[in-house]
Each structure stands twice: as structure tokens, then as C-alpha cells.
């Protein structure tokens, strides 16, 4: 069989000279060594023919890892649909059953109570109530969405096709999507009820919620999810308590600071999504 020969990769002397220079050859050495290196081109290796490559492929094909029919079907469907947004929404839809009716009802009830309390006008500090109740939804959502480790289901979750990051993202879409939806409903209710400063009230509800959600998930990389959510929400309540009961202003709570808190919360969520995969082994039960 005739084998076409592979071309000499560095035909130009200046390329070879540069390569020799890079490896530390001096100018005098270059003149000495260049002819010897150029002579390397005289020994060409035969190139494998198409038949050789096909023969090699035929030998390798049986060694390819075999996927289970279920996994192949999932992969095929994933490739068919392609778009990652679609995949995320599909995963999120599959995760909705994880939450149960209690989560939806309690969250809606807390929001409703907040709206009623604000609209009744009986509270001296409406914003304080919203700042305390909004993050409670984050606390609740975090505990329910990420309780896999506590109920010994984490190994099963890790064995599924979606990665831990995709699962976390899908659950955050559900929790935060629902909470933001409730926030919008709260805004509408306040606006319809004739409350003043609707935007400020909504921000004071929504932004601390993001902060507590981000902080709870960040802490969950080190602590159990219950402990992390409790520490995050407890810390936030402590800050609020100090802020209102003492003359010491722990946190100057304004619209701008609310936005800042929300931004910090989103940044923490982004950090968690980046760190969740390498830190996942910590959550697995120890033998």
C-alpha cells in the first residue's frame, strides 16, 4: 500500500531558527545547529491511509462507553430541543412537584397578610413588616427547595441527568419567580389600595428577600441547609431589630440601600451557582 508522506511541519529556516532561539540557543549556536535541525525533514513518516483510519475506528467503536436506553433517550431529546432556556424551564417544571401545596399557600398567605397590614394603616412602620416578612419567603423556599441532603435524596439527585448547577438554577427560577410574582401582586394590591410609595414598599419587601436567599445558599455550601437558612434569616432579623430598637443605625435603610442589598443578594446567588458543583461532595452522607 502506498502511503502519502506527512509534510515537514517547519519548512522555513526562520521558523526553525526562532524555535532554537526560544529554547535558549545563542546566535553562534543557531548557525551551528540550524543545518542539523533542517535535516530532520529528510525523515518523513508515512501518513495513515483512509483505510487505516477506518480500521482503527472499527477497532475502537466497540470500546465506546454504552449509554443506557433511558439516558440515550434523554440525551436525544435534549439535543432535539437544544436551547438551554427550554431545558431550564423543562427542568424547573419537573421540579415544581418538589415544593408541595404548603409552600405555595404559606408564601401567598404571608404576602397577603403583609398587604393587608400595610393597607389597614394601623402599623407605625409598614416597611419594617415588609422587610421582615419578605425574607421569610426566601427562608421557606430555600429550606424546601434544597432539602435533598436532609432527606437523604441528594445521591439520587446527583445521579440524574441535570447537573447540581442546573437543578439549583431550576429551583431558584421556581422560588424567585414565584416570590417576584407575589411581589408584583403585592405592588398591584398596594397601588389599588391607594398606598403611597408603592415602589419603596415593594423594594423593601423584595430586595431583602434576594439578600437572604443569596446568603442562605452561600452558607449552605458550608452548613446544612436548615442551619444556613436560619442563620441568614436570623441575621437579617437581628439587623432589623438593632436598626429599629436602638439609636445605633446598623443599616441605613433607604431605597438605594434596598437596591444595594438586592444586588448583593444576586451576586451571592451567582457565586453559589459557580461554587455549588465543586462543593457538592460536602453534602453527601459520610460513610
Amino acid at each position: 500500500m502506498l502511503h502519502p508522506q506527512s509534510p515537514w511541519p517547519s519548512e522555513r529556516p526562520e521558523q526553525l531558527a526562532e524555535a532554537l532561539h526560544e529554547q535558549g540557543a545563542t546566535l553562534d549556536e543557531l548557525a551551528e545547529l540550524l543545518p542539523a535541525v533542517q535535516r530532520l525533514s529528510q525523515w518523513q513518516a508515512p501518513q495513515p491511509s483512509l483505510i487505516d483510519t477506518q480500521r482503527l475506528l472499527a477497532r475502537l467503536a466497540p470500546e465506546l462507553p454504552a449509554l443506557s436506553p433511558v439516558r440515550q433517550a434523554i440525551r436525544a431529546q435534549q439535543q432535539r430541543h437544544g436551547a438551554s432556556l427550554y431545558w431550564l424551564l423543562t427542568t424547573a417544571r419537573a421540579q415544581i412537584s418538589l415544593f408541595g401545596p404548603a409552600f405555595w399557600l404559606v408564601s401567598a398567605l404571608v404576602t397577603l397578610l403583609g398587604a393587608v397590614a400595610v393597607l389597614s394603616g394601623t402599623l407605625p412602620n409598614e416597611e419594617l413588616l415588609l422587610r421582615a416578612s419578605g425574607p421569610f419567603l426566601a427562608y421557606l423556599g430555600t429550606i424546601i427547595a434544597f432539602r435533598g441532603a436532609a432527606v437523604r435524596a441528594l445521591e439520587c439527585e446527583l445521579a440524574c441527568l441535570p447537573s447540581p448547577v442546573q437543578l439549583a438554577l431550576a429551583r431558584l427560577v421556581i422560588v424567585l419567580g414565584y416570590d417576584v410574582g407575589l411581589g408584583l401582586a403585592l405592588s398591584l394590591a398596594l397601588w389599588a389600595g391607594g398606598a403611597s410609595q408603592v415602589l419603596a414598599l415593594t423594594l423593601s419587601w423584595l430586595m431583602p428577600l434576594l439578600l437572604v436567599a443569596g446568603l442562605a445558599l452561600l452558607l449552605s455550601l458550608r452548613l446544612s441547609i436548615q442551619a444556613a437558612a436560619s442563620v441568614a434569616y436570623g441575621s437579617w432579623l437581628a439587623v432589623l431589630a438593632i436598626d429599629t430598637t436602638s439609636t445605633l443605625q446598623a443599616l441605613p435603610l433607604t431605597q438605594l440601600s434596598d437596591m444595594l442589598l438586592g444586588g448583593i443578594g444576586l451576586a451571592l446567588l451567582a457565586i453559589v451557582l459557580l461554587r455549588i458543583q465543586p462543593g457538592m461532595h460536602r453534602l453527601l452522607p459520610r460513610a
Binding site: 506527512s6 501518513q47 495513515p48 487505516d52 483510519t53 449509554l67
Partner: peptide, 29 residues
């Protein structure tokens, strides 16, 4: 590594000649 035949064909086609040239010279032809 996930078992994709087409990906294997692309990998082999791309690297076969280069790898062969390397090993051929390494083992003295």
C-alpha cells in the same frame, strides 16, 4: 466519553495522522 460515535470518528480523523507520525518517529520507524 459519553459514547458518541460521530465524535469518536471526528477525534480519530483529526489526530490519527499526527499521533502516528509522533509514535512512528519515537519508535525508530
Amino acid at each position: 466519553l459519553a459514547g458518541d460515535q460521530a465524535a469518536l470518528a471526528a477525534l480519530v480523523t483529526r489526530h490519527h495522522a499526527f499521533l502516528f507520525g509522533y509514535l512512528y518517529r519515537l519508535v525508530g520507524g
